[in-house]
Amino acid sequence: MKEKPRSVARDAPPMRSLAQRFAFLLLLGTAVGLLMIGRADPRIFEETRMALIDSTAPVLDALSRPLATASDAVDHVRELTHIRETNAALKAENARLMQWQHAARTLFAENDQLRSLLNYTGEEPVHSVAARVIGDSSGPFIRSLLVNAGTREGVQRGHAAITGAGLLGRVAATGERSSRVLLISDLNSRIPVLIESSRARAVLAGDNSRRPSLTFVTANTSVKIGLRIVTSGHGGMFPTGLPIGVVAEIGETGIRIETFASSDQLEFVRLVDYGLDGVIGKESAATAPGVGRNR
C-alpha cells in the first residue's frame, strides 16, 4: 500500500466537466442504441463480428495449442493414477462391445441384402471438416465455441458440429477462416428430437444449463431415465438419428438430458454438411430477421 502506483488516482477530475458527462451519456446512449438495433435484426452485426473473430483467429489458434498440450499432460498424469480400474472397466466393456460388433455385422450384412433387393440408392455422402476449438466464447447467457475453419474450408451456416460422442451444436456464423458454433445447451437452441426407443417426438431446448431440457414431448409418452435421445430430422436442420444424449433427470425442472458431447475438454470438432438447408435456408439466411435465434 506504500508504493505510489497502488494508491488511487488523486488527479482525476471526477465527473467534473460537462463534456465528460456528455461523453458518458453519449456512449451509454450508443450502447443502448446498438442493443436495440441488434435486437431488431440479429444478423446486422454478424459480418463485422466474424471479420473481427477472423482477424484474431490466428492468435487464438496459437494460444489454444500450448494450453491444449498442457491440459493433455495433466490428463496423462491423472489417468495413470486410475490405470488399473480403467483397465478392468475397459476389459468388461470390450467383452460387451464384441457382442455388439457381432450384432452389428449381422445387421450390416442383412441391411446390405435388403438394400440390394429394394434398389435403394443410399444417402448422399457427407462432406465434413475437422476443426480445432480455438476459443470458448461462452458466458453466463451464451454457450458457443470458436473453431478454426470457415468458408475457406467450405463451412457454412447450419452445418452440424459433432464429436465422436454425439451432436454438439451447429454452425451459427462463419468467417473466412473461423466459425462460431452454437452449442445445444445455448438458450437459443431448439432441436427437434426423437426418443430413440419409442420414436416419440419432442424438442430439445437449451437453457444455458449443463443439461438441456426436453419439451413438447408427444402426449402419452412415458419418459424414463436412461432413454436415448436422437435428432429427429424434422425441420431439415439435422439428419435423423444423430445421437444427442440420455434422459438423466425427471423432476420439477422438467426432463433433463445429459448430452454425450461435452464442450469442456474438447480440442477438435467435426463440422458436417449433410446437405440440408432446412430452417436456415440459404437465401432466407441472408435476409430473414431472427433466424439466428432459430426458433
Binding site: G33, L34, L35, I37, G38, F45, I53, F141, I142
Partner: peptide, 12 residues
Amino acid sequence: FMSGGPIGQNAA
C-alpha cells in the same frame, strides 16, 4: 463482438 452476445451489452 467476440463473445457472440448482444452487441452493446458489455459496452454499456
